[in-house]
Design a binder for these strands. Structure first.
Lengths: 343, 343
DNA sequence: ATAAAACGCTCAATCGATTTAGCCCTGTGT
DNA sequence: ACACAGGGCTAAATCGATTGAGCGTTTTAT
């Protein structure tokens, strides 16, 4: 079941494999191959539908034309959407994508990197977990392009594409305040990764700016590993105990659990408890009442990630490309104290 | 930045690369390598953290330990969730996954297959588009294991893992009828692929069984390529014109568009228009009113897909493994004519 | 005692493409 | 007439692992 190889073409054209390789790699001019021979080879290659064996090529050149995509959770709406854009864009450049989910677990992330490394992927797109500084540095050492996404590592100088988490959270919180909510809380993860920290900071900044009393009770942190039931129970418990009148959920899945929790308490979203969530979702758009959220420009995130990576793959730059894209606040019904008629 | 190769180990152990290869591939006994040498090699390999170069190995053996996953849309909730399970399971067997979305477009699917082919993936997981019969047959010819998912091709004898679309649709429709809805419609895709056809058939069978008048007006078909706006407009138009009192949406994204449409008409889901959707979604669970749906056993689908594929990769069987898993009807508020108090 | 088998390991070819070094030929300059 | 410079192409090494054939030594069988 062998495919067409460079030898087959060489044989048919009556030339050496070397010549075929030169021509097929566009080095005909540089290597002074005559036009006649070039054309003949091209024609035959076309006729035979020759496709270079990527393994052989990779073995020789060290380039596999493969990217590694390590996300937190490929089943999550945000990451799945980014993955799609990434795959699409990469494809345009002739790259394929290997993927894996970390579940925000350092061990899993480590395992994924390990595998991708000895699969010799050319570049990495990584949603880093904590304690990944060393591994990222290591990749830099071996000159493998890396683009971090969704978050970055403050102590590592690397390329990254993220959104302005601070501004997003600040705008969301300010919006809640301006809508007249008084006792506002933030529900976030236990993780102290930069994107979460920035969302916290944006939240707090809005608090300060408007002179709201800030204390540790306004923050509820929940571990990523906890399951759905655990999350909703914890959120429900917290909401019942703390008597807040609005909540900022720091990620999309927390927002989803949050909706469940608020409703299980018999409270009306918007009227009784305002809510904003970081990251959009079909669910937020269509929920009644619809959920105000900080929407990330997914298309652009994906495009830029690949963009940066391709630039690096072609000619490594000395300075890190660090893109901070602006999210948009999608104002919906969950932040209206007066209940709007359901559309 | 070369990695550790078999040669390095050979040198350190004072043996030939051949011997190292034998030992590392568990052929020590078979190839009569002494225990001392075996152990020494193993120890050195461990110390050096040797990982075989998959490219070289693949070039020689033709096995890449890579699977190709071709889905309709990786950003779709269902496929993203299956992808996650697949990646996880494949990983357990030492396989990595390359993925791509077809958008249900034959050309795109063809392109993906082409790429995966000359990337020499060992096995394929495919959500086939129409007119893929030839390509699947071709893969069979070259003895590449293929498992179809979500749907299969009636004219091709292949492995597949799907759900019982007929039963799912039958149960959903019967449920609508039993809830007292009279003018029931189905909104589906223009595609005549088997999963859609079976959902249609299940729908119609329930109609017949209960003596409901069936005519072509109860069916509305929409093309996959249409965008959100187009979909909602068309659905809205149809609902307004046809005066149905319940709708069965044949896929999750149609259901999502359907919710938008029904609401834009100012109708109450459940009370004014009952609805059921094939395939579950967070949105359906949390929507008010919550949406009754036919839920697919995603975990098991993913596990079985990999399961079947691994069996084939180890020893090709002569008969096709064709798994039809049972979906479950999740009864929720969207099929209650009396409006329940929103929880 | 001697051929045959068992041991324990290695040589070298192979997978398919890339790439360095270099061969032979023709034409130009002197 | 002779060196030298391209022009046009190829041989062979290389990437790292696998594998069929085989080589020298010792043990077993007859």
């Amino acid at each position: 079941m062998k495919g067409i190889s460079i030898k087959d073409i060489a044989k048919q054209a009556g030339v050496s494999p070397t010549t075929v390789s030169f021509v097929l790699n566009g080095k005909a001019k540089e290597k002074r191959i005559s036009d006649q021979v070039s054309k003949k080879i091209l024609k035959i290659a076309n006729k035979l539908k020759y496709k270079p064996n990527q393994l052989a090529r990779g073995l020789r050149t060290g380039k596999t034309k493969t990217l590694g995509l390590i996300v937190e959770d490929i089943a999550n709406n945000f990451f799945a959407n980014v993955a799609k854009v990434v795959e699409d864009e990469a494809d345009k450049h002739g790259y394929k994508v290997l993927f894996g989910s970390t579940e925000d677990n350092t061990e899993k992330a480590h395992g994924l990197l390990e595998v991708l490394k000895y699969r010799q992927v050319d570049g990495y797109i990584i949603t880093p977990t904590k304690n990944m500084e060393k591994e990222i540095e290591l990749l830099k050492m071996v000159r493998k392009p890396v683009v971090l996404m969704d978050r970055y590592l403050p102590n590592v100088d690397s390329h990254y594409v993220v959104v302005d988490n601070y501004q997003g959270a600040y705008a969301a919180t300010t919006h809640l305040i301006e809508q007249g909510y008084q006792k506002i809380a933030i529900i976030t993860t236990t993780s102290d990764q930069v994107q979460m920290k920035q969302r916290m900071d944006g939240f707090m900044a809005a608090f300060k700016k408007h002179g709201l009393p800030y204390n540790k009770n306004v923050v509820k942190r929940l571990p990523f590993e906890m399951d759905r039931v655990g999350h909703t129970q914890e959120i429900t418990k917290y909401l019942k105990a703390s008597k807040v009148d609005a909540v900022f959920f720091a990620t999309n899945y927390l927002g989803i659990y949050g909706i469940e929790s608020i409703r299980s308490l018999g409270l009306r979203i918007g009227a009784d408890v305002g809510m904003v969530c970081f990251d959009d979702h079909d669910l937020f758009r269509l929920h009644s009442p619809s959920i105000t959220c900080v929407s990330q420009p997914i298309e652009e995130i994906g495009r830029q990630i690949v963009n940066v990576l391709m630039k690096e793959l072609n000619h490594a730059s000395s300075t890190s490309q660090q893109l901070v894209l602006q999210p948009t606040l999608e104002v919906r019904q969950s932040t209206m104290k007066e209940v709007e008629p359901v559309a």
